[in-house]
Structure formats: structure tokens, C-alpha cells
Design a protein around this nucleic acid. Structure first.
Lengths: 168, 168
DNA sequence: AATCTTGTTCAGTCGTGACTGAACAATCTA
DNA sequence: TAGATTGTTCAGTCACGACTGAACAAGATT
């Protein structure tokens, strides 16, 4: 695995057995991004791609992504497109090149917060449904649901101001 | 599945085939809490237990939890203890009763935020390591890492003030 | 002592979903 | 036309981890 883009490093130790390559700082960071994504219920490869773009922001070709991260083109296709759908990376085209390129979006973290906000609003929807369909005489239950609702309202508010605080 | 605690409902339709029972509002809410937890990378049963306690806050015995949620005692043991470790529910003992009881913690949502904060701080740690171990001449990379770090700093800050805003 | 009751642990199963390879579609080049 | 090149899709595999049942430990009861 070679995460630099400099040609002279490309295949120094390339034909080794496919296990435990000692990772440098960059490689370790990318793997940790993968593990961290996995903990959040996101595909590990998505996290690794995100990490890769933190390191190399610039346009990177589809094929290069597959090769450097050592994953199939199919996985790159699926995961890069889902990251693009979230607005974390974006597709770009280079004139005179038929390949797809991706690059880090302008404000990837704002987009992350926005996807959190979507999740929270879904939760608010669930709470609304529960409040409507649970018998009105279960007062303690409704009180706890109201508390939960206050929490999500405040959390949504906090994240919206966070978006503003982070500028543009 | 009978989520009420009233005895007269206990076994009205009990001996049906073990599939798709039509869920009432309470049951639907509990299942949605389970699915929502799963999306967050948490065990579905943990989410259902949490939902159960939103509905029935009061002390509920270990055995009752297992029976009403239709899961093994082993699962209840594992998941209830992990929720208790997060401070979302807590163990209580009733005098003269050898069973374990659980109840909803005082401010379960504050504890949820605190566990998010832990995750964010781990992320900050990863960023610190990356910053230290990645060659200093990769200026663009360090700039992106710095941007990411600013994001997490702001997010941690926002969640801390959220905790304060939610009182006690 | 033997026998319940109650919670934990552990080996094993089973489902889910991430990931792959291969077939495919679309577009370019010769 | 045939043959590259490139991305997507889809069926299939495989790993991971949630969940279970059974064995176990620790008390209580007789």
C-alpha cells in the first residue's frame, strides 16, 4: 500500500504477501478513519476514502483510488458515490480525460453535520408518531417523550448554530 | 409481544405463530428505537431496551425485560449492562427482592451526549497523531487536518454548551 | 445436603451487509 | 467493424458481530 502519489515510491515493496504491511503515519490515519467510520455504522471503505481525501485533497482518478486503497472498482464505485451523495466528496471531470475524478468537497464537515441533522429530524418524526399513537392517559410516558423531544429540539438547534459558527 | 404491564392484557393473543404481530403505537415505537440504534452502530436490542424504558420508566425486573422484549436473558444481561455503563439506565435493588431491576437514569440524554463527546475526543486524538507523524512538508494535508481539527473543537464546544443548556 | 432462583459467561449459530468478480453498458479509438 | 477503456450493476461470498442456549457461579431456601 502506497499512499503517496510520487512515482518513485510506487512499487518499492510491492510484491510482498498480502498481510500486515507496516503502516506509516498516513496509512495509519487512513485506517483509523476506516475504523472510526465502522463504529458509526458506515462502511469501512467509505471512511478510508474520506481519510484518503483528507490526505490528498486534489482530484484523484477512480482507478487510482481503487489501486491505492487496494479495493475493487466495484467498492470504489459504490462508496465514492455514496460519499458524493452526502456532499463530502464531489465528482469532477478533467478536460480531455474520460475517467471520473473525485475531490474533497468544499466544506465536508458541514455536510456531515447536515446528515446528522437529517437523522435527528427522523428521530423527531418517530417521537411525533409515538406521541400521537400512545394512549393519552399514560402521563409518565408522555412526559418522558416530551423530555426526549426537548432534547432533540435543542440538539438540532445546537447543530444549526454550529454550522453557522463554522462559517460559510 | 405485550408491552403494557397490565395483567389483563398479558396473554390475549399469546399462542400465535412467532411472526409479524401487528404492533400498536408502543410496540412500534420500541421497534423504531431498535432500528434507529442499529443505524448508529449500536445493537438493536440496546435500542429496544432504551425504548422500553422511555415507555416504562420505572424499575423493571431483569426477567420481565427478557420476557416482554422476547429476547434471551443473555442478551438482556449484555445489553442492559452496556446501557448502564453508558449511564442511560441504572441498576436498582428492591428491598427483599433478589432480582435485578433497572430504571431509566435521571438524564439519559445528557449521558448520550457525553458518549458522543468521548468519540469526538478520540477523533481529536487520532488527528493529533496524524499531525505529528505526517511529514511537515505536506502543507496542504496539514491544512486540511487543521480544518478538521477546528471542526471537532467546535463540535465538542457546541455539545458541551448543549449539556449546559439542557439544565442540571 | 439437595434444589431452586438469578445473573453472567462462553462457544456456537445465524443474518446482515460489506466487498468482490464478472457481466454489462457506454464511449472512445483504430 | 472490432477492440480498448471506464464505470455500474448484480449475484455470490465472506466476515463480523448480535443473539442464543447451555453451562456455570453465587446465593437463597428447604
Amino acid at each position: 500500500m502506497d499512499y503517496s502519489t510520487q512515482a518513485e515510491h510506487m512499487s518499492v515493496h510491492d510484491d510482498r504477501e498480502c498481510g500486515s504491511a507496516p503502516l506509516d503515519g498516513i496509512g495509519r490515519f487512513i485506517e483509523q478513519m476506516g475504523l472510526s467510520a465502522q463504529k458509526d455504522g458506515v462502511a469501512r471503505i467509505s471512511g478510508r476514502i474520506f481519510g484518503y481525501f483528507i490526505v490528498h485533497g486534489g482530484p484523484v482518478s477512480f482507478a487510482q483510488l481503487a489501486e491505492e486503497l487496494q479495493v475493487s472498482r466495484a467498492s470504489v464505485s459504490t462508496n465514492a458515490r455514496s460519499l458524493a451523495a452526502l456532499g463530502i466528496i464531489e465528482r469532477v471531470t478533467l478536460p480531455g480525460d474520460r475517467q471520473d475524478y473525485y475531490q474533497l468537497a468544499a466544506s465536508p464537515f458541514l455536510r456531515m453535520i447536515e446528515s446528522y441533522l437529517i437523522r435527528m429530524r427522523q428521530m423527531q418524526e418517530i417521537l411525533q408518531q409515538a406521541d400521537d399513537s400512545i394512549p393519552a392517559d399514560m402521563h409518565a410516558t408522555h412526559a418522558r417523550l416530551a423530555q426526549m423531544r426537548r432534547f432533540y429540539t435543542a440538539a438540532v438547534q445546537a447543530n444549526q448554530t454550529l454550522i453557522e459558527d463554522l462559517g460559510q
